[in-house]
Deep mutational scan, measured.
Amino acid sequence: QEELVKAFKALLKEEKFSSQGEIVAALQEQGFDNINQSKVSRMLTKFGAVRTRNAKMEMVYCLPAELGV
Rank of each mutant, 00 (worst) to 15 (best):
Gln1Tyr: 14
Gln1Glu: 14
Glu2Ala: 11
Glu2Cys: 15
Val5Pro: 04
Lys6Ser: 11
Lys6Asn: 12
Lys6Glu: 14
Ala7His: 06
Ala7Asn: 04
Ala7Asp: 01
Phe8Tyr: 00
Lys9Cys: 12
Lys9Asp: 03
Ala10Cys: 07
Ala10Lys: 08
Leu11Thr: 03
Leu12Val: 04
Leu12Thr: 01
Glu14Lys: 07
Glu14Phe: 06
Glu14Ala: 13
Glu14Trp: 07
Glu14Thr: 12
Glu14Tyr: 06
Glu14Val: 06
Lys16Ser: 09
Lys16His: 05
Lys16Val: 08
Phe17Lys: 03
Phe17Trp: 09
Ser18Thr: 12
Ser18Trp: 06
Ser18Ala: 10
Ser19Glu: 08
Ser19Gln: 08
Gln20Ala: 13
Gln20Glu: 15
Glu22Gly: 09
Glu22Ile: 03
Glu22Thr: 07
Ile23Cys: 03
Ile23Leu: 13
Val24Asp: 01
Val24Ser: 05
Ala25Val: 11
Ala25Asn: 10
Ala26Ile: 06
Ala26Phe: 11
Ala26Val: 08
Gln28Trp: 09
Glu29Val: 09
Glu29Trp: 08
Glu29Ser: 12
Gln30Leu: 14
Gln30Lys: 10
Gln30Cys: 06
Gly31Tyr: 02
Phe32Leu: 02
Asp33Ala: 13
Asp33Asn: 14
Asn34Pro: 04
Asn34Arg: 09
Ile35Cys: 02
Ile35Phe: 04
Asn36Lys: 08
Gln37Ser: 11
Gln37Lys: 15
Lys39Ile: 14
Val40Cys: 02
Val40His: 00
Ser41Phe: 08
Ser41Ile: 08
Arg42His: 14
Arg42Thr: 13
Met43Lys: 00
Leu44Cys: 03
Thr45Gln: 12
Thr45Leu: 11
Thr45Trp: 07
Lys46Phe: 14
Lys46Gly: 07
Phe47Asp: 01
Phe47Tyr: 11
Phe47Leu: 13
Gly48Phe: 03
Ala49Ser: 04
Val50Thr: 10
Val50Ile: 14
Thr52Glu: 09
Thr52Phe: 07
Thr52Arg: 15
Arg53His: 15
Ala55Val: 08
Lys56Thr: 06
Met57Gln: 13
Met57Cys: 03
Met57Trp: 09
Met57Ala: 10
Glu58Ser: 04
Glu58Tyr: 04
Met59Glu: 07
Val60Tyr: 04
Val60Lys: 03
Tyr61Thr: 02
Tyr61Val: 02
Cys62Phe: 05
Cys62Arg: 08
Leu63Gly: 02
Leu63Ala: 03
Leu63Phe: 07
Leu63Val: 04
Pro64Ser: 05
Glu66Gln: 08
Glu66Trp: 08
Leu67Val: 15
Gly68Lys: 04
Gly68Ala: 07
Val69Thr: 15
